[in-house]
Design a binder for these strands. Sequence first.
DNA 1: AAAAAAG
Length: 489
Amino acid sequence: MVDALATKGILEPFPIQEQTIPMGLNGQDIIGQAKTGTGKTLGFGLPLLQELGLNPEPGVQALVVVPTRELCVQVAEDLTLAASNRATKVVAIYGGKAYEGQVADLKDGAQVVVGTPGRLLDLASQRMLSLKNVKVMVLDEADKMLDLGFLADIEKLFSQTPPTRHTMLFSATMPGPIVALARRFMNKPIHIRATDPNEGLTQANIKHVVYRAHNLDKDEVISRILQAEGRGKTVVFTRTKRAAAKLVEELNDRGFNAAAVHGDLNQEQRERAMAAFKAGKKDILIATDVAARGIDVNDVTHVINHTIPEDHDTYLHRAGRTGRAGKTGIAVTFVDWDDMHKWSLINKALDMGQPEPVETYSSSPHLYTDLDIPAGSKGRLKATSILPKTVEAAGRPPRERRDGDSTTRPPRERREGDRTRTRSRGASGSSPASTGPGNAASTNGPADDAATAGKVEGSGTHDGGAPARRRSRRRRPSSGGSATPPPAA
DNA sequence: AAAAAAG
């Protein structure tokens, strides 16, 4: 298995993998905690596969439970890849999809089941799925799985597996009460934190930026951020499904190339959106918290919280969609008038050291290039506000956008062409704008792909990491940008 | 308090 990974260019394990794999191989119950984007999936995946052996008998012997359908698909893909040189079959069991294929895979003797709770229980109650021979059970995003919304289902699933099973819980966040609760399902678990206890859980390679959002046209400011030089893929989080649906329409109307994923869409639409985003056919994903956890997409340089998350754990998971596998990223948060308290709680919990967001707005397309954001010392980040050096004369308050020329909306007659160009650019997969954090994001210069490519990282192998083809791009004017083209132009 | 997760 390790050989198989090595042939795919995966050589050096992440710390969480270094620590959990030996313990997992010993059959020790594990609560594994590590920062976002540091390879937790294989942290449980490799010991899980090892425990089943090279040539396991047909039938379900390992169960991995995840909170969302998209994560289910992804984890199943990662495990399938890791198992590519063994006779172990992996099946994804989740809702919103036909039963037939999933049931057929089970009948075919799949040994590893990755699933969401509802469909797992559904199939179990229909006797299509038996958990009585499960040797290993994993809760991915474990704190979420033990949350009130899921706990009853999880208890049922546990109760259908043998008490002798090997149990592993993984997440970036593990609140104390959840750890206590988790022990009920585990046998003398060891709590592995692959992080310096003094360091906190924020990623040192993610920069945190915050706007006070009242009197701010968020759509407009987001549009500007989406034009940042060197921007790669971007995930925008909204609080509600409706807001996500509205925003994706607005941005696409402005000539951007966005897809949406949220629970009001059917599963086919959701999967199409995710696939397009992963492939780079869409470089913006508008999402509810369905995509806050676990989702691993290469070259996400920006996360934008259109609406502030409800708690600091959600903040951390959302922001963690960028800055993965050692790359740099930026997390931008808009704090509405009513959300100041939420922000202060998040800020305090994550120790980001910024008392309050600053009201500001920049008419400059160089939204980030004028920033001087201090890097967090010792992994502790300072949240920083965007403070344009000047508000240019040509700029006007964003609220007036609809009254006249838009600063970000491309001219009508060009928009069809823009879209085409954007698509072909994205499809190349190695365009300047999608090759990772550029000048906007980096203090470290270009993401050191070479240094991180070797890490045993879930999907780092899915695309071979085409080298960044850096084309010197036309500099946008730093002033008077009243007709700034969309990202593709 | 919203979203997610069965249909």
